[in-house]
Amino acid sequence: MSLRKGEDVMGIFHKGKKDDKPNPVSLITMFNKRSVISEQCRTIRSNIRFSMVDKDLKSLVITSAGFNEGKSTVANNLAVVFADAGLKTLLVDADLRKPTADLTWALSRDEGLSNLLVDKTSNYENYVSKTKVEGLFVLTSGHVPPNPSELLGTERMQEILQTLTQNFDLVIFDTPPLTAVTDAQILASRTDGTILVVRERQRDKREIMLSKQLLDMAQANILGVVFNGTKASRDDYYYYGSKS
């Protein structure tokens, strides 16, 4: 189902980021539940639920057109608010190229999704970690493999996905950028819903359009867009949130 080779076509659109080191993302929804952003995340959670009334939403892919748009932040924090709502949630770091979940949750990266994919006899329970957030579990990326797209496209992945969705209420996948590699497309085609994260003034409109086309080609169910990094409308939320 690989529409394009998993090679890096970044050069077309961006001149390559200097800072390629992965960093932990903010878990603001966990540490400050009253902050504006936590409130915004809960709004997104509600909207996701509303957009999937007719069908059961068990798996969710969070992706974006390019790097640095806030995929991981959105994925992690959405996982937290979904767990807060009582769903047994699993966050899977499917970004096998630039993983962050291990850093974000202070977990080991040695064992994770890639190991699960390679070792056909292994059980997911050996790799999933419980977190301090009740009902939230994390599956880190595991060792960074040389062929992430191929791994994610295997039958084994399909199996894993099935087992996970059976055992969790919601599985959220944090994925690599769409315009760079095909990983997110593969996952999006196999999951119930896809969310595109777009950061304000970050990417060219063409790239966002292209991302949508890529998802459409993969027959992904695009639930909608999370618009990240806005500055203007922040004050509107202070009424409900607290100024922190």
Binding site: S26, I28, V36, I37, Q40, C41, T43, I44, N47, I48, S51, G70, T73, V74, I195, L196, K205, I208, M209, K212, I222, L223, G224, V225, V226, F227, N228, G229, T230, K231, S233, R234, Y237
Partner: peptide, 14 residues
């Protein structure tokens, strides 16, 4: 208007 996707929400800058 152009992408024709619903907006699930906005997230402010931290």
């Amino acid at each position: 208007n152009e992408l024709e996707l619903p907006i699930l929400g906005e997230i402010s800058v931290l």
